[in-house]
Design a protein around this nucleic acid. Structure first.
Lengths: 147, 147
DNA sequence: CTGGGATCGTTAGTGTACTAACAATTCCCG
DNA sequence: CGGGAATTGTTAGTACACTAACGATCCCAG
């Protein structure tokens, strides 16, 4: 069990194409393409995520929103700024805690959400398209454990 | 089977937390953290990917390298520039095709690859840590089909 | 009630990612 | 062989993503 086999084991058996991180990035790329094809110049996936979370939970502080959509403080600020610029969200000072900025959807934001939620579901659908229903469940179960 | 159930079906049953794209992004974030913990300020995952591919295949044009590591022309340029700035890679004009820039590792680049390939494997290992061996295989098979 | 620690938000800096427009080559077909 | 099409690379512009440093505010223990 020693000898040549050990030498091979010591060789750097590193193949980029087999590493999860590399594959993960490519799956993300494909998902981004599908999303962009569906939403075009209207909204990015990040902006949609923030908007959808606001629709789901109602208004909340910018900081909390960031945690809910897994964006750090610097990133969520940019995303909120762009949603505001597009007239889909608005911000105001929290009277109870003057550190806080409260973010909420505008009427246009709520309309946009209602008009596009189905389309967003189809993006997920198309992303998982190559898999059978059972395989999709399997994948989601496994991915969730790596979160 | 009609009535209230139909109304519910028509409701936007969109839950951000259940969408592949959202989960995928969080898994990527965790992987990036693990990579950064292992490689610190030495190199980003992108730079490592390009370096590893160059080690695997030897020199090649910047354009081809980009395709091999799934980065578009603008992105691969930035990554190569940073590898060159760190002294890990170098570029030269291709005498046979004057449009092309040939990229190759320096001696320092090859040393860095040999010194860190095992560490890169451990990053993959740790990313997949929560899964049993059989589950890891399952995940990779499914992910590859979504590429 | 006060002072130190935690929280919230902004800014600056670096590094992906992608698009679009452009210039320089090279290729190939008529 | 000549000229349009395709390939290669650069640049500019927008949008994530994270770190670090900073100021303002809030909270709580002594």
């Amino acid at each position: 069990m020693t000898g040549a086999a050990d030498l091979l084991a010591e060789e750097t058996a590193y193949r980029l194409d087999e590493q999860v991180g590399f594959i993960l990035r490519q799956v993300q790329q494909r998902h981004a393409l599908i999303f962009a094809a569906a939403f075009g110049d209207d909204l990015t996936a990040m902006q949609w995520a923030a908007l959808a979370k606001l629709a789901e939970r109602g208004e909340c502080s910018q900081n909390l929103l960031g945690r809910l959509v897994a964006m750090d403080v610097a990133t969520i600020k940019g995303v909120v700024d762009r949603l505001v610029r597009r007239g889909l969200a608005e911000t105001s000072a929290d009277p109870d805690d003057r550190r806080r900025v409260v973010v909420r959807l505008t009427e246009a934001g709520r309309d946009f959400y209602r008009a596009n939620a189905q389309k967003a579901l189809r993006v997920t659908e198309e992303t998982l398209g190559p898999l059978a229903p059972r395989e999709r469940d399997q994948l989601l179960v496994l991915l969730r454990r790596l979160r």
